[in-house]
């Protein structure tokens, strides 16, 4: 019970009146574009230079809406007496966005970082058939893919960085042991130190990649744990 009868009625009027004096929340969409958060799922871009036509994305897609055609090309042996190399060449890569449900599985499974989310969302068509976009359009959308946002301050270290740091630490420890051991031959500390230095350099490069927003591919490498791809690939293999 409200203390005064009609108290609730007055409250209702007050709420609407107060709302009227506030700024509205409406976004005038075509005039002002929305500010999309990072990793918005607008459309899928294809970085076709990276695609090896492994077909994983097409097989994993729950809607089977990725169409890939390819052929094999052989390159003659590089050296006389060597073996001929064969490689896949992409003929067609199309995604039917009238079927796609934006689950992102294709992007997750691609082992070669050829698929990316782009925040681009204004690709409505008047004919449903025009929603099947071919590789040139998908490639064009790559230009709209933003750099990945930096990791959260307290986020776990990327697995690649952790692995690199571990090996560096191990090598450094070995080198220290080698230096401290008096009867060791003179050559040994030097050879132990050499790879250690190389590993440090690699780690530096990795760290830079992970934080440099320009290099989307490398950063994705660094932030995405590769381990959980194993089981998924196995599942894909069981598919007809």
């Amino acid at each position: 019970m409200s203390p005064i009868p009609g108290h609730g009625l007055a409250k209702g009027l007050a709420v609407t009146l107060r709302t009227m004096t506030r700024r509205t929340v409406t976004q005038q969409y075509p005039e002002t574009l929305p500010e999309l958060p990072p990793r918005s799922r607008g459309v899928i871009g294809l970085f076709e230079e990276n695609c090896t036509v492994c077909m994983l994305c097409a097989r994993e897609c729950p809607d089977w809406c990725i169409y890939i055609d390819s052929h094999k090309e052989t390159t003659p042996a590089a050296a006389p007496g060597g073996r001929e190399r064969s490689r896949n060449v992409l003929d067609r890569f199309a995604i039917d966005f009238s079927l796609c449900m934006y689950c992102g599985i294709c992007i997750e499974v691609c082992p070669f970082d050829a698929l990316f989310w782009s925040p681009e969302f204004e690709y409505a068509e008047t004919d449903i058939r025009e929603l099947t976009h071919e590789r040139d359009t998908l490639r064009e959308w790559m230009w709209t893919v933003p750099p990945p946002p930096a990791l959260d301050p307290a986020a776990e270290e990327p697995k690649e960085l952790a692995a690199a740091r571990k090996s560096v630490d191990k090598l450094a420890a070995e080198a220290r042991v080698a230096v401290q051991a008096p009867p060791a031959p003179a050559a040994q500390p030097a050879s132990a130190a050499q790879p250690a230095k190389g590993a440090t350099a690699a780690t530096d490069a990795n760290t830079k990649d992970a934080t440099d927003p320009k290099d989307a591919t490398a950063a994705k490498d660094a932030t995405e744990p590769k381990d959980d791809k194993g089981p998924k690939d196995d599942k894909g293999g069981e598919r007809p």
Binding site: T19, M20, T24, T26, Q28
Partner: peptide, 13 residues
């Protein structure tokens, strides 16, 4: 217009 603004909208624009 009044109804729109009371509901935090803009109304016809």
């Amino acid at each position: 217009k009044v109804m729109a603004h009371m509901q935090g909208r803009l109304g016809p624009m």
